[in-house]
Amino acid sequence: MKRKDFMLKMLAALPATSIAMNLTELKTLAGSLEATPKMPVLFLGHGSPMNAIEENKFVQGFRKISNGIESPKAILCISAHWETQGTKVTAMQNPRTIHDFGGFPKTLYEVQYPAPGNPQLAKEVSEISKTSGIQLDESWGLDHGAWSVIKHMYPQADVPVIQLSLDYAKTPQQHYELAKELTPLRSKGILIVGSGNLVHNLGAIDWRKLNESYAFDWAKEASAKMNRFILNGDHQNLIAYKKHGKAFELAIPTPEHYLPLLYVLALQQKNETVYLFNDEPLGGSLTMTSVRIG
Rank of each mutant, 00 (worst) to 15 (best):
A74I: 03
T107S: 13
T131W: 10
H175T: 02
D167F: 07
H81R: 03
A91T: 02
Q93Y: 05
G102L: 04
L164I: 07
E110A: 12
G47D: 01
V89Y: 09
L166V: 03
V161E: 05
H81V: 04
S66V: 11
L178P: 12
W82G: 05
I98Q: 00
Y168F: 14
K73F: 02
G86A: 11
W140F: 15
I75P: 02
L76T: 14
M153I: 06
N118Y: 02
S165D: 04
N94H: 15
T183Y: 11
K130A: 14
Q60E: 15
S79K: 05
M50N: 00
G68K: 13
E181L: 04
L178T: 12
I69P: 01
K170G: 03
E70F: 05
L44Q: 01
E55Y: 02
T90P: 00
P172C: 07
S66Q: 03
A146W: 07
K106L: 12
A80P: 15
Q120N: 13
P119G: 08
M92Y: 03
Y176D: 03
Q163M: 12
W82R: 03
L164K: 12
S148L: 09
F43A: 06
E124N: 10
L108P: 01
A169R: 15
E124R: 14
E110V: 09
Y168W: 13
T84G: 00
I69L: 01
S48I: 06
H46K: 00
I150S: 02
P155F: 00
N118K: 02
K106I: 09
H144F: 11
S148M: 10
L108W: 04
P172R: 08
A52E: 01
S79E: 05
F101A: 11
I150G: 03
Q156D: 15
V59R: 01
H175W: 04
G102F: 05
S129W: 11
H144E: 10
I53N: 02
G86R: 08
G102S: 09
K88L: 13
T90N: 07
E127Q: 14
A179V: 09
H99F: 14
L142S: 07
H46G: 05
E124F: 11
D137E: 13
S126G: 10
P40W: 13
S66T: 09
G47F: 02
H175N: 09
E54D: 12
S139C: 07
G145W: 09
H46L: 04
E110L: 14
